[in-house]
């Protein structure tokens, strides 16, 4: 495993921990999109179908369990926790799941490396992960009033994507036959979605101001 991949995984882990910290200690999920969190739970459930059949390393298995456990517990908190659920901006978080889920499923059925159930589900999870952040970005744009933890959460997620791209570039040059078009293109699309957010995040950091997205 190279340093970019490890750093990418660690920022991904940090993003989840920041979100859980916010929800667990402040007992608030204001500004967090439940739609995005449900999509992530679906992404991990579909991607890690091989968790008990395809052993890569202890590291991989433990990380998979953490991502599955954390994504489902975040959804549980936001839906059912008697205090946390009251802070959920339900009226602002109106993005429809199926606008994202259905096209990704159709695309995974059409474009995949192998037409088997597990492989199509794995491909579906890649396509869905690429766009799962959209409800969150829409919610940020609508509420505009972004607290630090929510801003850091989205920033860390974007950093994780950027580091994965560096990881692929590194692997392409160091490992023979490392070519994965589906992973790369969906990963690139996903990273580009953060570009706008990153721009405003950088501006607010540079000017030492509170993050504020334009209408």
């Amino acid at each position: 495993m190279n340093i970019f991949r490890l750093a990418g995984d660690m920022t991904h882990l940090a993003s989840v921990l920041v979100l859980l910290l916010k929800i667990h200690t402040i007992k608030s999920c204001a500004g967090v999109s439940l739609k995005t969190q449900e999509l992530y739970a679906l992404v991990f459930a579909c991607r890690y179908l091989d968790i008990f059949t395809n052993f890569v390393s202890l590291y991989n298995t433990v990380m998979k369990l953490i991502f599955l456990g954390s994504s489902f517990s975040i959804v549980w908190y936001m839906r059912y926790h008697k205090v946390v659920r009251r802070s959920y901006d339900k009226d602002q978080d109106t993005f429809r799941h199926y606008f994202l889920v259905l096209p990704c499923l159709v695309l995974a059925l059409l474009i995949n490396e192998k037409f088997t159930f597990k492989e199509v589900m794995w491909t579906f999870s890649l396509y869905l992960e690429a766009v799962a952040i959209l409800p969150q970005l829409v919610l940020l744009q609508r509420t505009r009033n972004i607290d630090n933890l929510t801003g850091q959460y989205v920033f860390l997620l974007g950093a994780y994507r950027g580091l994965y791209i560096l990881n692929w570039i590194y692997r392409y040059f160091t490992e023979p036959h490392f070519v994965h078009w589906i992973t790369w293109i969906s990963g690139l699309v996903q990273t580009l979605l953060y570009a706008d957010f990153f721009y405003y995040y950088y501006q607010s950091w540079k000017n030492n101001q509170k993050l504020h997205l334009p209408a």
């Binding site: 995984d9 091989d50 890569v56 991989n60 991502f67 490396e113 794995w122």
Partner: peptide, 10 residues
């Protein structure tokens, strides 16, 4: 195996 080659990432 060939199939799991790309699935060693998270």
């Amino acid at each position: 195996t060939e199939q799991s080659e790309g699935h060693d990432e998270l």
